[in-house]
Simulated assay, not measured.
Amino acid sequence: MDKPFHNSSRTCTLCGRAVPLTFHHLIPRKVHRRNHFVRHYSREQLAAGIHVCRLCHNGIHNAHDEMTLAKELNTLEKLQRDDQIRRHVQWVAKQKT
């Protein structure tokens, strides 16, 4: 489990709430050792991620499996365009901090 990252000047990349943040790897760590990802991505690309709140982070992983996240939703823009994640983030944005 990711350790919370807390800095009052930071907000969740997805919902914009100022709450403790976690780090979401855009390519989930679970797949980093698979041959496809070792061959096609640099260490920097595999380490890339965004800071999101726990509710958004849970929503990302509840909406899609690791392989779908790794192959199809591996950028912030792709996550933001996904209907299921977008609906969840809209709900999270309305929650109290």
Results as ranks from 00 to 15, higher is better:
52 V>R: 02
22 T>F: 14
91 W>C: 07
77 E>N: 00
2 D>T: 14
21 L>M: 02
85 I>T: 02
56 C>I: 03
33 R>C: 12
80 Q>I: 02
6 H>P: 07
30 K>S: 14
43 R>A: 13
39 R>C: 10
38 V>W: 02
54 R>H: 14
62 N>G: 11
12 C>R: 03
53 C>S: 03
91 W>Q: 09
4 P>K: 05
31 V>K: 04
94 K>G: 14
13 T>Y: 11
68 T>W: 01
79 L>W: 00
66 E>T: 13
63 A>G: 11
91 W>S: 07
29 R>W: 05
6 H>N: 12
60 I>K: 03
49 G>R: 01
30 K>E: 15
37 F>D: 05
74 N>E: 00
47 A>E: 10
58 N>E: 14
34 R>Q: 12
14 L>F: 04
29 R>V: 15
80 Q>P: 00
11 T>N: 12
20 P>G: 05
83 D>E: 07
30 K>L: 08
33 R>F: 15
57 H>P: 15
83 D>M: 01
88 H>G: 05
85 I>D: 01
76 L>D: 01
43 R>V: 14
4 P>E: 04
59 G>F: 15
36 H>D: 15
64 H>C: 10
29 R>G: 12
74 N>Q: 00
81 R>Q: 11
67 M>V: 13
48 A>T: 13
43 R>N: 15
97 T>M: 08
22 T>H: 15
51 H>I: 10
14 L>G: 01
4 P>R: 04
7 N>S: 06
65 D>P: 06
11 T>S: 15
62 N>F: 09
91 W>A: 06
61 H>G: 08
25 H>F: 12
14 L>E: 02
5 F>S: 04
32 H>M: 05
62 N>V: 06
51 H>W: 11
33 R>V: 14
59 G>Q: 12
55 L>R: 13
81 R>Y: 06
